Simulated assay, not measured.
Amino acid sequence: MIAPAHKLNARRLAALTATCALTSLALTALAACGSQSAPGAGSRDRTARTTVSAPPRPATLAPGPAGLTPVFKNAPRTPASTTPTVALTFDADMTADQGPRAAAGERFDNPALVRTLRREKVPATFFMTGRWAEEYPAQARSIGRDPLFEVANHSYSHYAFTDRCYGLPTVPASRMRADMERAFAAFRKAGVEHQVPYFRFPGGCYDKRSLRALAPGGVTAVQWDVVSGDAFATDADAVARQVLDGVRPGSVVVMHCTRSAAPTTERALRTIIPELRERGFRFVRVSEQIRAAGARG
């Protein structure tokens, strides 16, 4: 039986509507595929055009008189018309014989301090002993792979490189370079990537004998011009005041990241960082200060 004309028209209209819907869905799907593939291709093109340059080689100072290890204290004092810089440095101290104390629960690390530097985006240089890297390899690796930071050598054992240095045991001259190299080896084993060829003498004690002993290692000895006074301090405000009173353009500040020996340092940083920024200082790593001193590399 033939359907009435108005029913045929209704059927044709429904069929036409369905066809249009299917066509629209197909076009949408094709457009969606196109929109997904285009960014991918563009991303590949952008990736292909991007070149990743290696970080610059850390600057070092030329050897001192008679080929002795050069010593760096602070960068040149910049004129008022340029942005002043300051380098915060942190000694990660642990002597070769402090393992039992660490096993008993004494903390020679300070994760809160590292978190504060990261939160505030403050570059810093960590002078780490090899023994510290062995005790806290995960932390050493984390610090040494963070582009904010660089890791320098603070000896393996934190024994003195001169006689009569704050009561520290003394490394024989014949073992000084080996002690330094042992620390670098500990860093490599822990996975530290941002090592720099700088050495800080335990206690800051050095003489011509120790400078001569380390000279074949090609390092620059790094001292400081601002003592924070955080070692064994209990007053964070006093530490902050001492740093803020001492900082000048180009300064290198010595602090510690050892909870047991410097428990107030992280709290002091909460005052030091914003105040120095308010004064217009820019935080840099030691490598930048050395480069500003006209170093080679």
Rank of each mutant, 00 (worst) to 15 (best):
A133D: 00
T264N: 01
G191Q: 03
Q242F: 05
F184G: 06
P63R: 08
R188A: 14
V196C: 02
T17E: 14
T47D: 15
H158A: 12
D225V: 07
M176A: 13
P39M: 09
A5L: 13
A41K: 10
Y166D: 15
R115I: 05
V219E: 10
Q223V: 08
T82C: 08
K121C: 08
A102S: 01
V253K: 03
R259Y: 13
P249A: 03
E135F: 11
L113V: 06
A221E: 01
F90N: 06
Y166G: 13
E135A: 15
A293Y: 03
C33G: 14
R46D: 11
T82S: 13
A103D: 15
E134W: 00
G99K: 10
A261S: 15
S228D: 03
Q223H: 10
P39D: 02
V226W: 00
W132G: 02
T85F: 05
L27V: 14
A238H: 03
A124D: 02
P123M: 07
V227P: 03
R44Y: 08
A295V: 04
A140K: 03
L30P: 02
D109Q: 00
Q195D: 09
S157I: 01
Y166C: 13
D146S: 11
P169G: 09
A185L: 06
A26V: 09
D163S: 14
Q36S: 10
D93V: 10
Q36K: 09
L25S: 02
C257W: 06
P123T: 06
T47N: 15
E275L: 04
H6T: 11
D230T: 01
R209A: 11
Q195K: 08
